[in-house]
Design a binder for these strands. Sequence first.
DNA 1: CAGTACCA
DNA 2: TGCA
Length: 194
Amino acid sequence: MEGFRLWPGALDAEAQSQLVQAVFGALGTAPLYRPQTPGGRPFSVQMSNLGPLGWVSDRGGYRYQPTHPVTGQAWPAIPQMLLDLWAATVGGKRAPDACLVNLYRDGAKMGLHQDRDEADLTAPVLSISLGDAAQFRIADGEGRTRTLRLTSGDVCALTGSARLARHGIDRVLEGSSRLIPGGGRLNLTLRIAR
DNA sequence: CAGTACCA
DNA sequence: TGCA
């Protein structure tokens, strides 16, 4: 599918553990929390953010905001490693200003959705998979979907015609990796929100 | 100004 | 984000 780009194993074991360490360190000041959909139902994933802007959802809808909805504090910085990874993969003039952190544990999943809360819907979205492998599903323009397995260290991007593709995580293969303290799958999504 | 990454 |  045009515009969906995958870099299998882009991150080696050392880079993966450095990244997990950096993100878990940042979660000390921006703790994971469980948001609600606008309809008031809880997400199964736990979320936090890094960077000037973070994606949040609550009864007020979806949006990007500069502060953590529970603590009121600014989100921690995006680690340089991730900015470098963005430059090395999707590149472009602008650096990402938002990094959504999603932790999948205990059967957490993510229904099919579009990323469309960004000001410029032509700027790429870059996703980094860490920890347990997962079944990722992405739809084409006709609504046909294809499933692929994302494993720890894989990096993928939604660009061009796939930028607005519906996608989601059907299931996580629990226990398939020992990378994440406490287990699970950690997904980092870099975006240009504004 | 309708719906939302939730749920079936 | 209040649903008028």
